[in-house]
Design a protein around this nucleic acid. Sequence first.
DNA 1: GATGAATGAGGATTCATTCAT
DNA 2: AATGAATGAATCCTCATTCAT
Lengths: 217, 217, 217, 217
Amino acid sequence: MTVQAQAAIADADEPRSSRDQILDAGERLFAERGYAGVSMRDIVADTDLRNQASLYHHFRNKRDLYEAVLNRGLAQIASRLAERRSGTLEEVDTNVDRLVDYLAEHPHIAQLIQRTALDGGRQLQRALNVMLRPLYSQGRRAMASLERIWEPEEVPHLAAGLYLLIFGYFANAQLLKTVVGEDPLGPEAVERQRRFLKAAIARLFSIDASPAKERLT
Amino acid sequence: MTVQAQAAIADADEPRSSRDQILDAGERLFAERGYAGVSMRDIVADTDLRNQASLYHHFRNKRDLYEAVLNRGLAQIASRLAERRSGTLEEVDTNVDRLVDYLAEHPHIAQLIQRTALDGGRQLQRALNVMLRPLYSQGRRAMASLERIWEPEEVPHLAAGLYLLIFGYFANAQLLKTVVGEDPLGPEAVERQRRFLKAAIARLFSIDASPAKERLT
Amino acid sequence: MTVQAQAAIADADEPRSSRDQILDAGERLFAERGYAGVSMRDIVADTDLRNQASLYHHFRNKRDLYEAVLNRGLAQIASRLAERRSGTLEEVDTNVDRLVDYLAEHPHIAQLIQRTALDGGRQLQRALNVMLRPLYSQGRRAMASLERIWEPEEVPHLAAGLYLLIFGYFANAQLLKTVVGEDPLGPEAVERQRRFLKAAIARLFSIDASPAKERLT
Amino acid sequence: MTVQAQAAIADADEPRSSRDQILDAGERLFAERGYAGVSMRDIVADTDLRNQASLYHHFRNKRDLYEAVLNRGLAQIASRLAERRSGTLEEVDTNVDRLVDYLAEHPHIAQLIQRTALDGGRQLQRALNVMLRPLYSQGRRAMASLERIWEPEEVPHLAAGLYLLIFGYFANAQLLKTVVGEDPLGPEAVERQRRFLKAAIARLFSIDASPAKERLT
DNA sequence: GATGAATGAGGATTCATTCAT
DNA sequence: AATGAATGAATCCTCATTCAT
């Protein structure tokens, strides 16, 4: 390796701002161990900072830091789902693709979100409303044309189910390694999950399956 | 058990053994706040015990207590799925019914399990293998007759999806309250979720929906 | 091994009374780790007893147990030095022999005594007075005839020195292993120490220190 | 140092660094009560620090603190024995003088070292090798010219004996108070012990043990 | 004589946070 | 913007001891 190359790496590797280093460390650690399982010390240790006090120059307290981490993740997801309109199945598929792409590379975010959800998720409610609304309203519109399939009051359950299917796979990657047998984040497994999701969604949304309404009667 | 018997127990002013009191408190608190979010002090405070030291007479340490709580929950679930054979859709439905019945009354367990899963879930792997095998093998047999629907390598993804759908709803009840609008653990919502699950499973398993294999070609 | 032999061992090995088991465990542990470094739990664990409460049936508290252990050790030493009179060098040698014999087999006692001494040794003062008096008065008498060697006020320093030389070797066996090179409690090392002690005492007490080499021939 | 300078320091109201205060408190307490007999709380209480947590800013844990205390003591002793060469009896006497001077003012160190030795003294082995080597090799050289006195394999026993004689007196001062009758650390007693040590060493090393009385005249 | 359960006090260590530099 | 030092409160767990059985 040339001296320039080394310099380039040194330059490129750690010149992230302290703030970003903290956010990155927080994202990883909060995702892996949860809010209470991570100490400020742990986070600083994952950083070039040498002192916990420095951290408080960037975030007022642990809760603030957690929310900054969470919001950064949520914003990146929201930005990927932003433009939406038609509510066709194809559009749902597009969003699934984008989510799968993103979460496969940032499984920490999926974990973080599920953890926050289990904690009561008050911090998610705003974000989730914004975020799920697309999927949801797309579903709604798709279903508007297909309203023979699901009762209106079942739609939230369906939306929740989609959320669980999509995020749960990535959030639980570590556990699924045992169940699936191979690394659930490897390219083959991710593609398989993508296909599975699309097929499952197609089945949940399609008319061909036996009409839901009949069940009720 | 008669109504009187139940009342007698409720009356008897906590005749539960200390061990059970600890397990109950641990179950509730670990489910609500996660392992790291609960202190031994918190647990003892939910108990007739007057001292943390007493707790260590029953469990060697926090981790041991956590695992005892978890295993008690897993055992209760496993016992409800024990006898199975045919692998027909009806049987899957029966198991869904039992799980929904149990989890609706013990949403803590669903939370606890999802939390443990997010933590890597090593403690789940044995249990989950045992527990999922019925569901799984039922699915497999159901699918054996329906193998036109899912590729064999997709089956684990389907199994994981079923787990997420079933447990996720109850584990995330607190968050879903906003999304669903009403208390997701109220009788109506639970019935709706039960119907949704059965319908979704029917769709995921039925031939009528467009064959999965076609997607692959 | 025959069945009878096994039974004999089983019979002979653990039918020690609970009290003796406790004293033995205490002796070993207090010697190795000191009073504060040993917990009642540790002691009970070295015993057939299954509960700490049982221990309090035999000793009122930790301090009592410690003193019982210590006194048992001191009594055994005192009994070995009991009969004495003449104050000749030969008699001193006899006592050295007996102490070396005993301490080589019970190095714990040497440790225990030195530990107690470092702790201020109030519990030793009675015992030590009794115990050292023989050695001391022997020395005195030996010196009475040799009072040209040591000033009267130096005699206590000499007595202390003898105590340190004799007990210190066995008490610090573990450390001396490095210095001496071999196990200081092995038979050869013990014999060497015995010879060294006698030669040293001879030199400290005699008017004309005879060369050590002559002893060996 | 002038009397004024000493007063100035005493006046200056503990301007010792926190680290030094901790080391000093640790030295005193560990020496008096042993490692297990001292709590971090005790140490902090002997300090200007108001909180146990502050202590951990300077030492990672109790064991680290103990070793720092011990090493500081050992270093001070080693520095006093540093330069040595000839191996004559006079040089041995010089080192004895220095050790006596130091230990008479820092009896804690003698206690600390003997306690560590009783604990197995793994932490002493390096230090002791370095430290004893001078004394030892001096002894060896002195004996080289006097090798008619001790067998080579007896030399380690002699070295151990010298260590026990020198350190033991100061380490056991509290106990010896009863035996000796007066404060063993008072100037008269110290001088007497110094004379005793030199006379004893002379007798242990010399071919013709000159009568002790002559020394006094 | 033995035991299971309980308990108040204290063990070492870590927590998030603040402050002066 | 960063750091060394400090701190009150809390962490998990162990201590010696007692009591009812």
